[in-house]
Amino acid sequence: MFKRILIATHGTEGAKKAESYAIGLAREFGAEIHGLYVIHKDLGSLVGIEWLHNSHVRMEFYRHAESEFNRRAEEVLEAFRELATGIEVTPAIRVGDPVEVIADEARNKGADLIIIGGSSNGRSEEYKAKVSLKKLSKIAPCPVLIANNTSMISAREVVWSLARQIKN
């Protein structure tokens, strides 16, 4: 049923749940996984109010920030890849609005399922941003699975309920 699963992860608590779903489903269906890490576009305006430095200092900061964000993204994706032994994982790091990037990436890669983490209640070590699930469900080219914080149910159950939803 699923051939290509797109997982958007940040390595946070909620995303970890999504990661397990993705791995479970991929194993079940023999699907391949696209691991996507989105660097939020608003990180670029983090230093907005700063005004007194010359462009040299700003550029140094931007370069440093860019490499840091990329390093973090690589770490998260690498950890995911290690978790998903035996599954073909292609990682991707992209910058932009999370919802738009996820939908776009799913379309480009021909994904047939998007899995994302629900909002995590605990403290997150990541850039905080609202992801509009409503918007995502509107522009996504395929079904979206949201891994929430409730206890794990078996992947099969999820798929059946999904399949029922799609049918209706």
């Binding site: 983090l46 230093v47 200092v57 370069r63 440093h64 840091e68 850039y127």
Partner: peptide, 21 residues
């Protein structure tokens, strides 16, 4: 001096992305 100082200091102390945020 606030954000400006943070911008100047971040690369020097090798701040992580989330630290800066």
């Amino acid at each position: 001096c606030g954000v400006s100082a943070a911008v100047a200091a971040a690369p020097v102390v090798k701040a992580r992305g989330i630290d800066m945020a």
